[in-house]
Design a protein around this nucleic acid. Structure first.
Length: 355
DNA sequence: GTTCATGATTCCTA
DNA sequence: TAGGAATCATGAAC
């Protein structure tokens, strides 16, 4: 500590190796005339230049002396306070912004799509919803559905990997900066608050990078979703077996071709329509079939006869054991046909007559 | 490329 | 709200 007299002047405030500067700061009167001022500046510059001439050991020793000086904490506290009251406080006020609504939207969307948050059964409810909206037939559709789920899962995986990378990088960088600032705080006034602020600035920077990642992920999900949903109008024909099952039902219930919900579901299962809303697909089929049969009974006559014959054979073989047992549950009874649900037999009869 | 068959969608009505 | 009717869209056959 024999260096201290060199470091500090009589009033206790001085910078290591800069007595002239300390003196200048201290009395504030140096250089009242031009010559004196020039002399002071020259001294300061000289002292700065001599710093570079110092050996590393000497510099370290000075640094250590400064760190150990009894007045250092007090001086740094004062300087920190001054900083707080000036530039940093202004910057701090500017930095306190509410959470970005855009980021919130992205977060919500990623949650809704099942990309962020806990994994929902490997493919998310959104995938199921999209698949349901797409409807579809048999294995074809379930394959498409699983394709959608697989792709969504890939997106999810990439998103989480990237997110993890960003978080890791952010943590590493934050730790590095914090260590650096702590180290620097020995030689220049840096308050813990300032370090905190710096950390939050870093976090904000990284979260803006994260936002880009979230944005790209959302875009990818949207593209995937639109591709999948665009396939809604893509016609996937029922396979032959499914058509046979539906036709069989249709012609065997020609007097009332309006399958109940249960019957529709049963038919859908029989036709291997594996996704939700399967009854909806069957409804479409029956809707189309009814209208087309009605419009062109003559054309369907042969088909009707064929299925009628089949039903008759089947009914004979099954005999009195209840021929309906093999077919999906009974349709809405012909007796309660409303105005819109007319028997198509009358149309066939007319057509037969007209033929 | 055209035509046909047929699944899907939309609008309207009872 | 379910079903009819019209229409669109697309796969398959030629």
């Amino acid at each position: 500590m024999d260096e201290q007299p060199r470091l500090m002047h009589s009033h206790g405030v001085g910078m290591a190796g800069h007595p002239g500067l300390a003196q200048h700061m201290q009395d504030g009167t140096a250089g009242t005339d031009g010559e004196g001022r020039k002399q002071d500046i020259g001294d300061i510059l000289q002292q700065i230049m001599t710093i570079t001439d110092q050996s590393l050991d000497e510099a370290q020793a000075r640094k250590h002396a400064l760190n150990c000086h009894r007045m250092k904490p007090a001086l740094f506290n004062v300087l920190c306070e001054i900083k707080e009251k000036t530039v940093l406080s202004i910057r701090g006020a500017q930095e306190e912004e509410p959470q970005d609504p855009q980021l919130m939207r992205l977060d919500n969307m990623l949650l809704a799509e099942g990309v962020a948050g806990p994994e929902k059964g490997g493919g998310s409810a959104a995938a199921a919803a999209a698949a349901a909206a797409a409807g579809g037939i048999g294995a074809d559709n379930s394959a498409e559905h699983s394709d959608y789920r697989a792709k969504l899962s890939q997106i999810r995986q990439i998103y989480h990997t990237e997110l993890e990378k960003y978080e890791q990088a952010c943590n590493e960088f934050t730790t590095h900066v914090m260590n650096l600032l702590r180290e620097q705080s020995r030689t220049r006034p840096i308050s813990p608050k300032e370090i905190e602020r710096m950390v939050s600035i870093i976090h904000r920077k990284f979260s803006s990078i994260q936002m880009q990642l979230k944005q790209s992920t959302c875009e990818a999900v949207m593209i995937l979703r639109s591709r999948f949903l665009d396939a809604r109008r893509k016609r996937r024909n029922f396979n032959k077996q499914a058509t046979e099952i539906l036709n069989e039902y249709f012609y065997s219930h020609l007097s009332n071709p309006y399958p109940s919900e249960e019957a529709k579901e049963e038919l859908a299962k029989k036709c291997s329509i594996t996704v939700s809303q399967l009854a909806f697909v069957v409804s479409n089929w029956f809707g189309n079939k009814r209208i087309r049969y009605k419009k062109n009974i003559g054309k369907f006559q042969e088909e009707a006869n064929m299925y009628a014959a089949r039903t008759a054979v089947s009914a004979t073989s099954v005999s009195a054991q209840g021929s309906q047992a093999n077919s999906p549950s009974t349709p809405n009874s012909a007796g309660d046909c409303s105005e819109g649900k007319r028997s198509l037999l009358s149309y066939r009869d007319f057509a037969t007559v007209l033929d």
